[in-house]
Design a binder for these strands. Structure first.
Lengths: 223, 223, 223, 223
DNA sequence: CATGAATGAGCGTTCATTCAT
DNA sequence: GATGAATGAACGCTCATTCAT
C-alpha cells in the first residue's frame, strides 16, 4: 500500500453555499461535496481507515466517528468504496493543484524538484491520518483500490520525470542516467522518509529535509 | 511498514527441527515448521493472497490451493492472520540471513550497498507472489504496521545505516549528510523501483538496476 | 388470493368528500381521497408497482413518479402497505359498482354472465398497470390473502353464483351441476385468459373473447 | 402470483446414498440434493414462504424452521432465490413426470384431460404449503421469479392444448373453438377451484371434482 | 401542508473458526 | 493427524418511516 504520502493544502472545494438570493439553491445539493456532513464523513473515514485499514473499518465505525447514522453515509456516497476513492482522489487533486500553481513561478528544474519534495513531505504535518492512508490503502492489492489509485502514482512519477528530462536537456542534470530510474529514486526516497516518520511518530522540518534529499540526489554521497 | 519487496533465497528458519531419530518425537511436532504441509500451506497462502489480497482470500481458497482441508490450516497455524505473519516473518528472516552470510566476504561499504540493492531487487524475479505480498499486504493498517511490520523495516534500515556510517568513517562517503536520511533514501529508491515493477508487471535486470541506483546515490545527477 | 385482473372504470369511492362550500373544511381533509395528490399518488403507486413489484418499489420511487416528496405520501396514507391496499380496494369497488349499475338493465342470466366476463376482460385494456397489479401483487402471501384480499374474491364469486342459480331456477342452465363449481370455473377461465395476456404482453378483443368463453361454458366442447 | 397449484407425487430424486462399497462416495456430495438437510431446508422454505411470502421470509426464518444456522443454507443453495427456484422447479418436474408416466396408458383425450385435472387438484392434499406457494409466488412480478416460473406455465398449457387439438382432430371435440382459449379455460377453472380451496381451508374429492369440471367443460351448462 | 435529510432496523451473504467423525 | 460440514457473528447496503424546517 501507500507510496504517496502528501496531503494537499490548497484548493478547498467548498463552494460557499447559497450565494445570496432565495433562488441560488440550485447547484448546491444538500448532500453534495459542499455540505458539512459530507466533509465530516470524509474526515471520519480517513481517520478510521488510517487506524484500522479499509477492510477492518466497518461503515458503522465510520458513521459513528462522523456522528451520523450508518445509512446517512449512503446519502453522501454511493458505497464504502466511494468514500475511500473520494478521499484519495481529493487528496491527489489538491496536491496536483498546489504543485501546478507554484510551478510556473519557480526558476529551474532543481527548484521544482525541491518544491515537490517539500510539499510531499509537508503532508505529514498537514494531516497525519491522510498521510497514513496514503501509505497504506493506496498500495492495497484489492482490485478496486488498485484500479483507481494506480493512475495517480503514474501521474506523479510522470511529473517528476518530465522535470528531470528538462534538466537533462538544459544540461543541468547528467544525461547518462535513466530519467525513469531517477524519478523513481527521488519519489521513493521522499516517500520512505515520510513513511518512516509517519509510523515512528517522529517529525521533521519539511523544508530542511527536502533540501537534504535534493543534496543527496544531486551531489551523491561519494566523498 | 510495507515497502519491503525482497524475498529470501535461502532455506533456514526451521526452528532447529532436530532431524534426529524416530524417537525424538517430542520436539518435532508433525505440524511444525519442518513439515511438508506447513510449507505447502505457506506457499499457497502467499500465492493466493498475492493474487487477491488478504481480505479477499478466504481460508478455504488457501486450503484448496495447498491441497488440504480448511480445518487442516488450523493444525499448523493459529489463525489466518498467523499464516500471513509467518509468511512475512520468514521472508524477512531469509533476507537477513542471505545478506548476513555474504556480507563479510565483501570488500567495502560500496560493494555491500550494491549487494543489498541487488538482493532486494532480485526478490521480484525469485518469487513474484512474495514480492507482491511484500508490496501490498505488509501494510494492512497503521495498527498492523506498528505492532508487527515495523521492526523488520527498522532492522533493515539499521543495516544500511551502519554500512553508510562505516563508509563515512573510512572517508569513502561524505560525512556532511545524515546517515539516516541516506539510508532511507537508498531503501526508498530501491523499494520504489521494485514496487513500480510489481504494480506495472514490468521486469528488469536486478544487477544492472542496482548498479544504476548506486551510481545515482554515489555520484548524484548533477551534470 | 389474487387472480382477479379487472380494473374498474367508474369513479366512485370518494368517501363522500362533501364537495360543499369553502367553509365545510371540517369534513374535508385536504389529504383525503378527494384530493388531487391523493389520486396522483395512487396512480403512481400502481404504475411503479406494476413495473417492479411491491417489494422492489421503494416509496421514494412512487413519490418521484407522483411528483411529491417521500414524506408527503405519509400525509395521505398510513404506510406503503396502505397505498397498495387502497389501490386494490378502490379497484374492486369500482368493478362492483360498474357491474351493479348495468346489471338490472340486462335481460337474463346469460347476458349478465357475458357482461361480467366482458368487464373483467376489459380491465386489461382500460388500465394495464392495474391489471398487472391485480394479477401479481394481490397475492403477496397466504397471510395477506387471508386477511385482506380474500373477501373481494368471495364477493365476486358470490355474484356469479347467484346469477348461475337464477339461471338454474329459470331452467336456462342445467341444475345437475354445482353452482359453486360453475362459478369458480367461469371466474377461473376468464381470469386465466387475462392473466396469460398480462404475462405474455398479448392483447385481445374483450367482447369477442367473452363471447368465446361463454360459448364454451354454455355449450361445452364436445363435438 | 401462482396460477399453478399442483404438487407432484412421483419421482423422488433421492439418489439413495452410498450404494455399498467404501469407494461409492463419489457423486453423492454431502450437501447435494440427496442429503437430508437439503430436503429439510427446502421443506422449511416452502412452509415459511407459503405463510409469509418470499420477500417477507428472511433467510434466517427459513434456517430457523429447518433447524440449521443461517449460513448452512448457503452450503446447500447458491442464494435465497435458488431455494425458491429449486422448490418450484422440483415441483413442476414431479408433476410433469407423473403426468407423462400415465399418459400413454390412457385411452383418449377426454381421459387425459381428466387425469391432468385430477393430478392438479390432488396437489392440495399432497402438500398444502407447496400449493399455496404455487398460488402466490409463481405469479410474483419480481423479475427473477417471473423469469424462471413462466416457462413452466407455458409448458403446462401447451400440454393441455395438444390434447385438445388431438381431440378436435379425432372429432371428439368441437373444432370451432380456439384450442388456446379452451386450454386456458380448463387450466384456469381447475386452478381457481384449487386456489379457492387452499385459501378457504376447504377440502374436496379430487377425482370427483375433476369429473365435474370435465362435465362442465365438455357438455356446457346450458339446459 | 409539504419537504427531504436523517434514521436505524433489517436484509442477504460471507467466511474464520470449531469439532465430531 | 486430517477432514469438511456446520456455525453465527459481522459485513455492506436498502428503505419505510419520522420530523425539524
Amino acid at each position: 500500500m501507500g507510496r504517496i504520502g502528501w496531503v494537499g493544502l490548497g484548493a478547498c472545494l467548498k463552494r460557499k453555499a447559497d450565494i445570496g438570493g432565495e433562488v441560488a439553491k440550485v447547484g448546491v445539493p444538500a448532500t453534495g461535496p459542499g455540505s458539512e456532513k459530507y466533509q465530516r464523513i470524509l474526515d471520519a473515514a480517513v481517520e478510521v481507515i488510517a487506524e484500522n485499514g479499509y477492510f477492518s473499518s466497518p461503515v458503522s465505525a465510520i458513521a459513528a466517528r462522523a456522528g451520523v447514522a450508518d445509512g446517512t453515509i449512503y446519502l453522501y456516497f454511493k458505497s464504502k468504496d466511494d468514500v475511500l476513492r473520494t478521499a484519495i482522489d481529493t487528496t491527489f487533486d489538491r496536491f496536483y493543484k498546489q504543485v501546478a500553481e507554484r510551478f510556473e513561478t519557480l526558476d529551474g528544474p532543481r527548484e521544482q524538484l525541491e518544491y515537490i519534495a517539500q510539499v510531499h513531505l509537508e503532508s505529514h504535518a498537514v494531516n497525519r491520518s491522510m498521510a497514513i492512508l496514503m501509505q497504506t490503502e493506496v498500495r492495497q492489492s484489492a482490485k478496486f483500490i488498485a484500479e483507481f489509485s494506480h493512475h495517480h502514482l503514474v501521474k506523479y512519477i510522470q511529473v517528476v520525470r518530465e522535470v528531470i528530462r528538462r534538466g537533462q536537456k538544459e544540461g543541468i542534470f547528467r544525461a547518462d542516467v535513466s530519467d525513469g530510474v531517477v524519478a523513481h529514486c527521488m519519489f521513493g526516497a521522499i516517500d520512505e522518509l515520510l513513511s518512516s516518520a509517519v509510523f515512528t511518530g517522529r517529525t521533521y522540518d519539511a523544508k530542511a529535509t527536502a533540501a537534504q534529499v535534493l543534496d543527496v540526489l544531486l551531489n551523491g554521497i561519494k566523498a
